[in-house]
Write a protein that binds this DNA or RNA. Structure first.
Lengths: 205, 205
DNA sequence: AGAGCTACAATACTTGTAGTTCTGTCCTTC
DNA sequence: GAAGGACAGAACTACAAGTATTGTAGCTCT
């Protein structure tokens, strides 16, 4: 048996969650953070919403910061799972590129926590971005690259980089929305990806 | 005679700068902002460094914010000029893609003001990004798209979007450096652009 | 074993205030 | 048109007093 050390494995590793109380707490914390931002939420608030004593939260999570990280981790895991599932039943590599991009961009835009912090507490966003951003991108990249390799078994091209470029385009659309590309609906996103991003793939050998 | 209304024209429009005093002030302001950030610099500091009375600055610029915007505008103009010049004597469209990306990314990374604010005053960076980021990207996109069209006179493909994707990849490398792609030296950047980004171009007709 | 509850020290965050700096304008002199 | 001084109002800094929050511990109940 080998030790899993990839970012993907680390981020997608199964969670114990014996009794569902962790889940209740994380749900409450997520709801609070999404509604009020990070700064204005106290552990007490989370406890009240979860219907739990404050001390219980401290028994499960070492401190507020780690609670936040646990919330983020779960959201990241959901995000990655969404990408993984949407690209699982793979047709062509082109299809994987398109669906990976569409789902990735949409899921990121729909992340209430992310957009909340980005818009109402930008000062805490950049730090979080440099703390988690790279790892999340690597994990998502690994998933997509895997899909591409599966779709093109013989092909030895650099799928990692192709996948990362996809993701970086999505990231920049998220962070700098006011460019020439609007990409509003799912249809627009898909059309753009199909028309332009599939070109990143070399024609199959 | 037609009115120029493109972002490019607006940003690249010639500056009067009658006497060179504006330049002295802008030089001083740039140096101060690069060294100490935006918050810690007073107009007095700028005046001292420029060897000018503080009131003079207020005669030339309406307020501190507008002085900052003038500094940024000049830097943006330099940035765009660098891209425009580096891609002027165009060979193939592929060459334009590669050089545009290399010069754009390097120039952005070497912008002392940008990196200064990004790292030491992130809270003021995101607002600036949404204020100016889109326009700058549009202007740079127009320049690059123009180069591509010139290199492929008959070709009717969507060069605007190709150019924008290039730029967005560069932006994301700037904002999220800790991914799988390091792209440290000029050679690495160029190799990446040549290998992957030129694929965004459709083969010539 | 683990949640609830109370209590508690330490820390962090508000509030109000006084003092200082900075901004932006005006006016006079050169 | 620039320099320089002078000035009111705004913004920032420092600091003290009060309040809220954090994180820990002990005890009870199941």
């Amino acid at each position: 048996m080998t030790m899993d050390t990839t970012p993907l494995a680390g981020l997608l590793a199964a969670v114990p969650d014996t009794d569902g109380l962790d889940t209740r707490i994380l749900d409450a914390a997520l709801a609070e953070f999404e509604t009020y931002g990070l700064r204005r939420v106290s552990v007490e608030d989370v406890a009240k919403r979860a219907g739990v004593a404050r001390t219980t939260i401290y028994r499960r999570f070492t401190n507020k910061e780690q609670l936040l990280q646990a919330v983020i981790l779960r959201e990241v895991r959901r995000f990655l799972t969404a990408i993984a599932e949407a690209t699982e039943r793979l047709g062509s590599a082109e299809e994987a590129v398109v669906e990976g991009f569409v789902v990735g961009l949409q899921a990121a835009r729909d992340q209430a926590l992310l957009t909340r912090v980005l818009h109402s507490e930008p000062e805490s966003f950049l730090p979080q971005l440099s703390m988690n951003g790279g790892a999340v991108m690597l994990a998502a990249r690994d998933i997509l690259a895997d899909r591409l390799r599966r779709a093109r078994p013989g092909d030895r091209q650099d799928f990692d980089t192709v996948a990362e470029v996809l993701l970086r385009v999505a990231v920049s659309l998220l962070l700098v929305p006011d460019g020439g590309l609007r990409l509003d609906g799912e249809d627009e996103i898909r059309a753009f990806a199909r028309e332009h991003l599939t070109r990143l793939l070399r024609p199959s050998p």
